[in-house]
Amino acid sequence: MDKHIVEAYVFRSDLKQTIYYTQGTDALPTLFLFKDYNIPVGTSVGIYVEKPSKKGVQSTSATLNVNENSILVDMDKQMVAEIGTAYMQLRLTKGGKELFTFVQPICVERSATPVVSENGMPFLDEAIAKIGEATEDTKAAAKDAREVAADMQQKAANGTFSASITVGEVINGEPGSVAVVKNSGTKKDAVFDFVIPTGPQGPSGVMAPSTGMYCLWVDPATGDLWVDYPDGTEPPDFRYDNETGNLYYDIEREDGTVASLLIGNVRNPLINNVTTTTPGQGALDAAAGKTLQDEIDAIKETLKNVLSTK
């Protein structure tokens, strides 16, 4: 016999036998024979092993035989790297639906040649690191928000900030021309007209940015929204409204007034960082988003009072 043979059940967990391995053995695969479930054609298989230390190993090294209704798992040294009881689970996926087997105990006996146990799921460590980075970024953003709020409150108290701002005409300029913003209103009640140059055609239908302008594009594989702007220039000033999900392009005048151009609504649903398969996504909202939102609310309240002052 060149492999372990185990009967597998998906409707009950009391009929299972312990598999015995010597630490570090990877020459003996394990054959799971399904007794109460017929594996459909086109099913893909994933393997997960939890070691005694709770470190994990993920693998797709398995051969599925529909005719024999079996799955042959190619064992990895890391699956049996630690002495004690490890637990293996198979994941069967077809048509977006998943079936998980009950955990299969693996008893690992001591070997004279020790094996260094590693974490075969590094994305967990990466996710934790990204959450930490997002938390620090949020703290910095909250600090900036407090400073902006204090500055606006001081301007309001001095009576130096009172204006209305609207967006006027938006015109497409010639390719290669310079973007122009013109106030067709007054200093107090500004109306900003935009001349936006048409960018040259870039690869995959993405418009390449021209001098003084930028372009937005969406990555169809990830859904991420990107902004391209010429090298050596400052990135555009974008502002995200956390309450509405709107993304704005802000242009600040020398007298302190600001024009806002609505780019679109880019709200994403809050993602559970523990279960997401995309590490770090949504970490800003989940880690410390409320702190930043409190500061944004304070700024909005200040702006409401300021813009009502004539």
Rank of each mutant, 00 (worst) to 15 (best):
T276C: 04
D297E: 13
L284W: 10
D228I: 00
I299D: 04
V258Q: 04
Q281W: 14
T113Y: 10
Y240K: 06
E98C: 02
T138K: 12
D237T: 14
D36H: 00
D237F: 13
I106A: 08
D219K: 07
E82W: 01
D2K: 14
L247Y: 01
L307Y: 14
S164T: 10
G120E: 08
D14E: 10
A134W: 09
T276A: 06
S117P: 04
K3D: 09
A157K: 09
P235S: 03
T186N: 05
A27Y: 10
A287V: 04
G120M: 03
D26Y: 14
S117K: 02
F100D: 11
L124W: 15
A140H: 05
D76H: 13
L15H: 14
L90Y: 05
L92E: 00
K182R: 14
K77L: 03
G185Q: 03
L247T: 02
R12L: 14
M213W: 13
V227Y: 01
N273V: 11
V306R: 03
P29S: 03
N272F: 03
K188Y: 01
R146K: 09
I71A: 00
K35A: 03
G84E: 05
P220M: 05
D250E: 13
K77A: 05
A286N: 02
A163I: 00
S184F: 07
S162N: 07
D125L: 14
Y21R: 06
T138R: 15
G245Y: 07
N272L: 04
D125P: 04
Y249C: 05
L292H: 00
E50M: 10
D76M: 12
Q78I: 07
F123A: 12
D297Q: 15
T18M: 11
L284F: 12
V266I: 09
N67M: 13
L225R: 06
K310M: 09
F161D: 00
Q89K: 11
M121C: 07
V115L: 08
V6A: 08
F123T: 15
Q104L: 01
A221H: 06
L262G: 05
I106Q: 11
K35G: 05
P40C: 07
K16E: 10
N273P: 07
T277R: 13
Y249P: 01
K94Y: 04
L284G: 12
T233K: 06
I83L: 07
E133V: 11
T222A: 07
I131L: 15
E295C: 06
D241I: 00
A156Q: 14
D144G: 06
D14R: 12
F11L: 15
A208E: 13
D144P: 01
A221L: 12
G132R: 01
G245A: 06
N246K: 08
Q23N: 03
K304R: 13
V206I: 08
Y240G: 01
D14W: 12
T278Q: 15
E252Q: 09
Y87Q: 11
N65H: 02
T135G: 09
C107K: 15
E68P: 03
T43L: 01
A127R: 09
P236I: 02
A190W: 03
V266C: 05
V49M: 01
W226A: 06
I271V: 15
Y214K: 08
A286S: 08
D144M: 05
Y21A: 02
Q23K: 01
F32R: 00
I128K: 12
T275M: 09
A221Q: 14
A127V: 06
Q17C: 02
L90H: 04
H4P: 02
G96W: 04
Q58I: 07
E234H: 09
N119D: 12
